[in-house]
């Protein structure tokens, strides 16, 4: 890997972590519960994209499976939280 691509990957990882910090601010600020669920969902998507970039950085397939798992857990988690906010219980 040439230094060009390595630096581009480092820069995009930096931008992703900046985005994560901004999302964390929204997560802590609220103001309502659904804002926090939305921020958590976005955090999962950002983590998944970061995993894919790390997979390119280390030229490894294993990160892809980690990204798939994060996406699935994020989906189930946000779905359960939104359902809880809608009715006050997860399983009816």
């Amino acid at each position: 890997m040439s230094p060009l691509l390595a630096n581009a990957i480092l820069f995009s990882l930096f931008l992703f972590s900046l985005a994560m910090v901004l999302t964390l601010i929204r997560l802590f600020k609220g103001p309502s519960a659904q804002d926090r669920v939305l921020a958590l969902d976005y955090l999962y998507i950002l983590a998944m994209l970061m995993m894919l970039v790390l997979g390119i950085r280390y030229a490894s397939d294993t990160y892809f499976e980690a990204a798939l798992l994060i996406a699935l857990f994020g989906f189930v988690g946000s779905f359960a939280l939104a359902k809880f906010l809608l009715r006050g219980e997860v399983i009816e």
Binding site: L4, L18, A19, L22, Y42, V53, I56
Partner: peptide
Amino acid sequence: VVGVLLVLSSLFALIGALGLL
């Protein structure tokens, strides 16, 4: 090409977070 695509996607992610905030 790969580097430009990665930086572009992280820029979109950053704009999304900025909008969220």
